[in-house]
Computed example of a mutant assay.
Amino acid sequence: MNRRIFLGATAAGLAVTAWPAFIRDAFGDGAACDMNGKPSAAPPVAQVSAAFRRAQQAGKALLVFVIPADDSARWERGRAFGELLNFGADRDLAPLAGVEVVCATMADLKKIVPGAGAGEPLMVLVRTDKVPAAATPLDASLPAYKSGRRLDRSSWEQQQKDEEKIAAQRIGALGDLLRRALGADERSVAARAAGVRARLVKQPPAGAHWASSSGCGTTIEGVEENGMVGCGMGHVPEKSRRFLYFFSVEQRG
């Protein structure tokens, strides 16, 4: 029987004091997820290849949520995508109905799509109907949260309001990016958004896990055992508490 154990850091990027030897702390070193969010032994590049084929067979484009190489950037980007998928309005999510979505590093993407481009944009849109496949980077500037939690009540209440405003700005920026790249078709918006939520919110996109943290450790959904770090060590904005986890969890036989 496979046994998967994770000892995590908070979404704020807290350091972990003792990683088990069999946990890989970089995406792609261990098992990831298949198209249904189930643990898979397939390496990340194989998941990109499979997603490309699914998109091609369905006559769709492939949208890649880019996983940064830097660990801290992975936490931040996973939070941003989590905010979009969990709290985006129908019009923000509806454009995703027409694409196949996968999470991957640029290094893995380039093994399948050599012309994917440079840098680490938020997303890359790959047109699968041409050979070689045409790729377009999609990028935007997202406002950052202020770190730490304010202690007195009035400051804490103001911080919550500030974080709500920043979350709305981040979701809005990502939604606008998707509408500009994929189109802003106003037909059946609610139905298309519902389909996206069923496909990408109930289960994670291929190449990622859903995880959650409120500043008291990180829990990865679908993992049988989860380690925790000390409570009260970090603060996570409310809409960032469920996020895409871009590190792999290794399976043990």
Rank of each mutant, 00 (worst) to 15 (best):
A104T: 08
Q56H: 04
K60Y: 10
D129C: 00
G217W: 12
K161N: 04
A42V: 02
C216L: 10
V223Y: 02
V45K: 02
R192F: 05
A206F: 09
A173T: 01
S212G: 09
A194L: 14
R53I: 14
K130I: 14
G115P: 04
G195I: 13
L125F: 05
G232I: 10
A116Q: 06
V126A: 04
F65K: 00
P39F: 06
G195N: 13
G98Y: 05
G183Q: 07
R242L: 09
A168H: 06
R241Q: 15
M233V: 11
G172R: 06
R252G: 04
L200T: 05
A167I: 14
N36H: 14
A173D: 02
K239P: 03
M35L: 14
S155A: 15
P68W: 09
Y245A: 08
P68S: 05
Q158K: 15
V66R: 04
M1Q: 09
A80R: 11
A184Y: 00
P20C: 11
K165G: 01
G207C: 06
S141D: 15
A32K: 00
C33A: 01
L62R: 08
M123L: 15
L182C: 01
C216E: 14
P20Y: 13
A107M: 08
R179T: 01
S40G: 01
S214N: 15
F246K: 00
G148A: 13
G232A: 08
G30T: 13
A51N: 10
G117T: 02
R187M: 05
G88F: 13
R153W: 11
L122H: 11
V223S: 02
R197P: 13
A135L: 09
